[in-house]
Design a protein around this nucleic acid. Structure first.
Lengths: 214, 214
DNA sequence: AGTTAAATTCAACAGCTGTTGAAAATCAAG
DNA sequence: CTTGATTTTCAACAGCTGTTGAATTTAACT
């Protein structure tokens, strides 16, 4: 049963609605009834398909997580194929950020909502971080390995803190909160992902070299 | 009526409890009854003192906002007094980050909770950002002015994006989520603010110079 | 068409939510 | 102590919450 060119099933509509609402208001700021209403579906259907409310949230998170991981893995491998086996810091940072930039510039609004959802989970202090650890950290460790090779004199501690800063800048950008629009009085736009990521690459690259370089 | 060396009033206990719980679970993840229970106070007292639930949240946010602004303003002025009128990028970044580092390393746990609360608001996509704009952006603009002088060839757009990256790295650090502990398998600690901010300064400084330097 | 399973809705539940008006307690001042 | 104001509690409200079991519709297959 091909699902291309086909209106999304009710099950998928529930995840679409959950994706948007959870990203905007967080886990506790959304009710199953709001999700059902936006998906034009009965309240009980979410429980039937996914179980408890937390399972709805997890299903929303898991639906696209593997796709992002695959894109980022391919991005790193392709960079290694074209640039040789020893990558520069800029190569690694570029490989890490470009897939996210492409997703957020995508016409499909689902990916924008999903990126904001991941940002919400990443900056959440409670149970959400366990989801991040299980689903994203294995891939992040591949990038950490590449960084260790590009910066052989750096301590693991410094490398992790540098990734932490990258993660923070990336998270706030993915969250797409509109803060920069206000602060810059309209000169910058939260959804100008072209500029956001193109400038983030040299920023993070030189930051890492400053902290971890020889 | 002096309030030093005096056990905190019930009104203050409510704000202390709200500070901790809102920082941990977000606005919708906390009920007035939970706040009242932690403050060992009746439910209705929060409404009596502050009004609606949103007013409790705003009061929690406003209680310490001006103190942070004053500290940061003094920090910038002191840097200008000692370093002369033309500050380096590193001076400005240092003046911006050091007060927060001091607050989070403070023995008073209230400030740690408050820093996490500010991080929550800053990465929230909804009404919270208005609070940030009104209470923090005036001070941030003073720092932006200093940065414009230190980087005269940078466009305002690039400068704002650089501050955005700084803000992201800072927000994730203030949030103190424990993510870095997991990813680094115990090598780094979210609450090692000494290392966190000492490394953030060169990271952000060189990032800004790379994007906005000549 | 008939049968079986899956998908979807309906109806209802016990429990919790923010909020408020009245009662009670505490405090300040004469 | 009496008075009046402020603070704190009590009790209750209407409305919303997640969840579930039964009923109904839709789909799949013979």
């Amino acid at each position: 049963m091909p699902d291309s060119e086909q209106s999304p099933s009710k099950k998928e509509r529930i995840l679409d609605a959950a994706e948007e609402l959870f990203a905007l208001h967080g886990y506790d700021g959304v009710t199953l009834r709001q999700i059902a209403q936006q998906a034009e579906v009965d309240v009980a259907l979410a429980s039937y398909h996914f179980g408890k409310k937390r399972d709805v949230f997890e299903a929303t998170f898991l639906r696209r997580a593997q796709i992002i991981n695959d894109l980022r893995l391919k991005s790193l491998q392709q960079m290694q194929a074209t640039q040789g086996d020893s990558l520069s810091v800029e190569d690694i940072v570029t490989a890490f950020l470009k897939p996210i930039q492409a997703l957020q510039m995508n016409a499909n609004p689902g990916w924008q909502n999903y990126c904001a959802l991941v940002a919400y989970i990443n900056s959440s202090a409670v149970w959400g971080k366990e989801l991040m650890h299980r689903n994203f950290d294995p891939l992040v460790n591949r990038y950490m390995t590449a960084l260790r090779q590009a910066l052989p004199n750096a301590t693991p501690e410094k490398l992790h803190w540098c990734y932490h800063y990258l993660s923070g800048a990336l998270t706030l950008t993915m969250a797409n909160t509109g803060r920069i629009d206000r602060l810059s009085e309209g000169r910058c736009h939260s959804d100008d992902f072209q500029t956001a990521y193109d400038l983030m690459i040299p920023f993070v690259t030189q930051g890492m070299l400053a902290v971890c370089g020889d």
